Amino acid sequence: MKVIFLKDVKGKGKKGEIKNVADGYARNFLFKQGLAIEATPANLKELE
C-alpha cells in the first residue's frame, strides 16, 4: 500500500515521502498513530 508519511518514522520514511509499505503495517500502526495517510489521488493532490 502506498502511504504519505506525515512524520519521520525511523527506518521507514521521512515526512512528505511517498512509499510502499505492508498493508497491515500501514493500517495497524502508521494510520492509528497518525504517522501516515493513504496515498489516494485526493491526498496526493493536497500534498502538492
Rank of each mutant, 00 (worst) to 15 (best):
L6P: 00
I18E: 03
K7A: 14
K15P: 04
V9R: 01
G34P: 00
N43R: 07
T40L: 06
A39L: 07
A26W: 11
K14M: 13
Y25W: 09
N20Y: 15
K32Y: 06
R27V: 14
E48K: 10
A26V: 10
I37Q: 05
K2Q: 12
M1D: 04
F5V: 01
F31Q: 02
V21N: 00
F31L: 13
G34A: 07
V9F: 04
I18Q: 04
G34D: 06
D23W: 14
K10R: 14
V3G: 00
N28H: 13
K7Y: 11
G24Y: 14
I37M: 12
L6G: 00
T40A: 04
V21G: 00
I37V: 13
I37K: 06
E38D: 04
G16Q: 02
L30D: 01
I37A: 06
Q33D: 07
N28T: 08
K10D: 12
F29W: 13
F31Y: 05
V9H: 02
F5S: 00
K7F: 12
L44M: 11
K19Y: 07
L35G: 01
A39G: 05
A42T: 11
N28I: 08
Q33P: 02
E48P: 09
F31I: 13
N43G: 08
L44Y: 06
E17Q: 10
N28G: 09
E46W: 15
K10M: 11
L47N: 09
L35T: 02
G34N: 09
V3H: 01
G16Y: 08
Y25I: 07
G16F: 09
N28P: 01
D23H: 14
N28Y: 12
A39Q: 02
G34M: 08
K7H: 12
K45Q: 13
N43I: 14
M1L: 14
G11T: 04
E48D: 11
A22I: 09
K45D: 09
E48T: 13
L44E: 05
F31N: 02
I18K: 03
K7I: 10
N43K: 07
L6A: 02
K15Q: 09
G24M: 11
A42G: 11
L6Y: 01
N28K: 12
K32A: 13
L6V: 09
K10L: 12
E17V: 03
V9I: 08
G34T: 03
I4D: 01
A39S: 04
K10Y: 12
